[in-house]
Simulated assay, not measured.
Amino acid sequence: MTVQDVRAFNRFYTNVIGALDYGRHLYAPYTLTEARVLYELAHAPRTDAADLREQLSLDAGYLSRILNRFEKDGLVERGPSQTDPRRRRITLTARGREAADLLEERARESVGALLATVSPADRPRLAEAMRTIRDILSGGRAPRAAARPEDVVLREPRPGDLGWIVQRNAAVYAAEYGWDADYEALVARIVADFAQDHDPRLERVWMAELDGRPVGCVMCVRDRAPDTARLRLLLVEPEARGLRIGDRLVRAVIDFARGAGYRALVLWTNDCLTAARRIYRRHGFTLVAEKPHRSFGQDLVGQDWRLELDGRNERGEG
């Protein structure tokens, strides 16, 4: 890649962004920078000037003038920080939130119009290309501070997602627990069996998506025991943890299994997966058996968990 390649892409991208704001109404009556400040305040309501300067890479004096104008116009309020008395917390007023919501609506409409020109088959490739540029130029530290639980979408798998389940399960468990290729082989068999022969009325896969990319998954399949479903392959990407994705995926399986007429939901896990076990317990699963074993290159303790779907042991949390 050369400097000219980057400059050519920049010119192209600038034209695309300019087309989104045809007629220059997208941010009116604010400038682009003012709109960015409103966006950050709307998505991180407990912030201060120092946070904004860092997040937006703005000059302190320039940001101060913007905030003074916003305060004069009744868009923001300043008060003492709850964590640092040397700082002043900045929050949107009701009027400020209305302004931020209006800008957000305009932005969604403009981007939606742009995406309407992209075929559905090309959208995953476009999202991946955008993500690649962001990750590389941020040194692999692309910001996700604004991510909220409500930004995560649970959806059906798309072409390529089942392969993602195999690859990410193998990579995450190898990195975090040292599991070898035997685990990848197991996941591949589970996914292949589902892809080859499953009843959509009784079996299903959920993908958790954030910013247009998968960050989690889970499966619900028929168990050998009658009237029993099995929860399998619950996974949440490390960088997406803390957004209650695991809780939502498990809740989706429980609701589906109950709606499909199953009387019980079971799962097998290992005692080293403490975060997953906490989720299962929150949703009412009980530990019914455990046994030491040697698998995936490690000495483990396997555990069988069970949830009666008539509600006798479900706590309804999550």
Rank of each mutant, 00 (worst) to 15 (best):
P120N: 10
R168L: 11
P143A: 06
V166Q: 09
P149T: 05
P120T: 06
G160K: 06
P143K: 05
I165N: 01
G112E: 05
D161I: 08
I136C: 14
N169L: 09
Q82Y: 03
D135I: 00
Q82D: 15
R106Q: 07
P149K: 00
V111E: 09
D151W: 03
G96N: 01
T117F: 03
R108N: 11
R131Q: 14
A129W: 07
L126Y: 10
R125F: 10
R123W: 08
V111P: 04
L137S: 15
A129C: 08
A99G: 05
R87E: 03
R97L: 13
P85A: 04
G112D: 00
R168D: 14
Q167S: 13
R168A: 06
E150Q: 15
P159S: 06
S138N: 07
S81A: 05
T93G: 14
R148V: 01
R86V: 07
R148F: 09
R131V: 12
D84G: 06
A100L: 11
R158Q: 13
M130D: 15
G160Y: 02
R141V: 05
E109C: 06
T132R: 12
P124R: 01
E128V: 09
T117I: 02
A100C: 04
W164M: 07
G112P: 08
E109Q: 08
G112C: 03
L162Q: 02
D101G: 13
S110V: 13
T83I: 13
G112L: 02
V118G: 04
D161R: 08
A127W: 07
E156D: 15
R168T: 04
P124F: 00
E98W: 02
A99Y: 02
L92N: 02
S138K: 06
P159M: 01
V111Q: 07
G163V: 00
I133K: 08
D135W: 01
T91S: 15
R144F: 09
P85R: 08
L162N: 07
R123Y: 10
R141A: 14
